[in-house]
């Protein structure tokens, strides 16, 4: 069954400063969308606002998942409704093993009385970890504790694959990854491709899109999506940068103070 995530006229402020200034976006399962744009234009803010990060305040607009009001939901309800955010800076939780955490998360979604069997869980975990070329030790290591930047990203993709959300939002999953690690993460994400999964890829660099082919590319500048197109748009950005778009749309450069 097709699912749809609809974002309308979304305005988001952080510490009283407006970062998103009216974002419109519609994503269906089965589609891969990429959002590109210069630093500090609000790409990561969009992903945090969709997931419900406590610091991001939605001041106007709406987000709906299959008609349900996402903004009315707590963070955990959003996750159980089918949203997943692969974070740029995943938290570390000491004393909680990666495996226990993932099993708890899967069971939280499945609900009481419908828990995944231990055997089935382990089989699935082994399979996904093998695909992501993660050693077995990552099962019993504490959640993200002492993980390198690359290990954390791979662990985010592992969770995405284990939890199988309707929509995966990848917030700069490529940052801090060398080319081999990037290929492995891309392999995991591509594995998710199908009618039941939609993806929103946020990145600075076209490089990632060489490995994960988007169906749609959106360019965000100064808190708005200013242009949308197909994969060829990303290629043009790679060659020519953002200046031609700014010129075409008459956008003045301004110094943006907020780092994403």
């Amino acid at each position: 069954m097709k699912s749809t995530l609809v974002i309308k006229d979304l305005h988001v402020a952080v510490d009283g400063k407006e970062i998103l200034k009216g974002v419109n976006l519609e994503i269906n399962t089965g589609e891969f969308h990429a959002i590109m744009g210069p630093n500090g234009t609000g790409k990561s803010t969009l992903s945090s606002a969709i997931m419900g990060h406590p610091k991001y305040e939605v001041t106007q607009g709406s987000i709906h998942l299959d008609g349900e009001d996402v903004l009315e939901m707590e963070v955990d309800e959003r996750a159980r409704a089918g949203l997943f955010l692969a974070m740029q800076y995943p938290a570390e939780v000491s004393g909680v093993t990666n495996a226990d955490f993932m099993r708890s998360a899967i069971n939280a979604k499945r609900g009481e009385g419908n828990e995944i069997s231990l055997m089935k869980f382990i089989r699935k975990l082994d399979e996904k970890m093998e695909l992501l070329e993660m050693g077995e030790k990552y099962q019993q290591r504490y959640l993200n504790e002492g993980f390198s930047g690359g290990e954390k990203k791979r662990n985010e993709v592992l969770q995405l694959m284990m939890l199988e959300p309707k929509f995966g939002i990848l917030d700069e999953i490529d940052s801090g990854l060398d080319i081999d690690a990037l290929k492995i993460c891309a392999k995991g994400i591509n594995e998710m491709r199908g009618e039941a999964f939609g993806c929103l890829i946020i990145t600075h660099y076209q490089r990632l899109l060489n490995y994960i082919q988007p169906d749609f590319v959106h360019i965000m500048i100064d808190g708005k999506i200013v242009k949308s197109g197909d994969a060829s748009l990303a290629e043009r950005l790679e060659k020519e940068g953002y200046d031609w778009i700014k010129k075409e749309l008459g956008i003045e450069d301004e110094v943006l103070s907020l780092e994403e």
């Binding site: 707590e74 955990d76 996750a79 974070m87 995943p90 004393g95 909680v96 939280a108």
Partner: peptide, 26 residues
């Protein structure tokens, strides 16, 4: 931020707290 992270994977608030406390005593 730990709570946000755990909850963003679908764990209800009480369950996320529970995990953090057990982890703290681990």
């Amino acid at each position: 931020l730990q709570m946000y992270y755990l909850m963003s994977r679908g764990l209800p608030r009480e369950e996320a707290e529970r995990l953090i406390i057990h982890g703290f005593l681990a």
